[in-house]
């Protein structure tokens, strides 16, 4: 009844054609701006002279890009960058390789206890990180890997989650493909490398992004593992920068911007895979 009444009035017609559109955009734009406000303040503050940081006006009176250079002068920021990318790169490579191989064994090969072992893998997904973190730390102490790249890379190179994710991808590949390859006399390695792996590419890319991101921002493990300044990764380096230069908010914000930018680039480039992966990862139930 009410529906029909609004339909007759001019406003109702305008509302149905344009108003809803404008309203939706208005609400969404307002929300987006609220979400973005901290980022905007961060970027603007990173260009301010220190005295202006606490002013109500978010814009700098004089833009000071030299803040960014100053960060590199105060701390070995480039080194932290390198360490983070180096460690995350290795972890990503190793994790993708070992996970893909294990996933092949779970998804494509028949062997005794396969399903039991897989269930064990799944069960470990719920173990909180802090449970394994402390024994792993003592293990690293025993192996003399404390304060080394290896100590950061090796324990992170194997995951049950990656195996699970890639197995799900591999199960969707038709079996007739590997059977045909095997008929032609291909070995298991050839089937894995030439047939299955190329078809698992979306899954591999998703896993690679997750792993890279997760490792790039991982904090607990590098924090307890690394003592030397030259081995610090970005999050640990940022922590010390904050505790020593915490009052120089403008420099701190410049460092924060530089910390976040690689993530934003990665996100924009890989959005499609990422969103799929998050929605797929939920199936683990």
């Amino acid at each position: 009844m009410t529906k029909q009444m609004t339909r007759q009035s001019g406003f109702g017609r305008w509302w149905r054609r344009r108003g809803r559109f404008v309203f939706s955009h208005g609400v969404l734009a307002f929300l987006a701006l609220t979400m973005l406000a901290p980022f905007l303040w961060m970027v603007l503050a990173s260009f301010k002279p220190l005295v202006e940081v606490e002013e109500l006006n978010p814009f700098p009176s004089k833009w000071q890009p030299v803040n960014y250079l100053q960060v590199f002068r105060e701390i070995p920021f480039a080194r932290y960058y390198f360490n983070s990318l180096f460690v995350a790169g290795w972890v990503t490579f190793l994790q993708c390789l070992t996970s893909a191989m294990a996933a092949y064994a779970f998804a494509r090969l028949r062997w005794k206890w396969r399903d039991h072992v897989f269930r064990l893998y799944l069960a470990t997904l719920m173990i909180p990180g802090v449970v394994t973190m402390i024994p792993n730390y003592t293990l690293m102490v025993k192996l003399h890997l404390l304060d080394s790249y290896q100590g950061l890379i090796i324990p992170a190179a194997f995951t049950a989650f990656g195996t699970f994710l890639l197995r799900q991808f591999m199960l969707t590949i038709p079996r007739s493909l590997d059977e045909a390859a095997q008929m032609d006399g291909a070995t298991h390695w050839q089937v894995f490398w030439d047939v299955i792996l190329p078809l698992t590419r979306p899954g591999l890319i998703t896993l690679a992004i997750f792993t890279f991101m997760g490792n790039y921002r991982s904090f607990f493990w590098p924090l307890v593992m690394i003592k030397s300044q030259h081995l610090r990764t970005l999050p640990v380096g940022m922590l010390y920068f904050d505790s020593i230069y915490g009052r120089q908010t403008n420099l701190l914000m410049a460092a924060t911007v530089m910390n976040i930018v690689p993530l934003i680039i990665l996100f924009v480039v890989t959005q499609k895979f990422l969103i799929k992966g998050i929605q797929l990862g939920a199936v683990k139930g």
């Binding site: 191989m101 064994a105 470990t124 394994t132 792993n136 194997f158 195996t163």
Partner: peptide
């Protein structure tokens, strides 16, 4: 052979520590 690398790491860094 395919499982070994991952499984070793899984034993050493997850199951063992638990």
């Amino acid at each position: 052979a395919f499982l070994l690398p991952n499984f070793l790491g899984f034993l050493v860094f997850t199951i063992g520590p638990v």
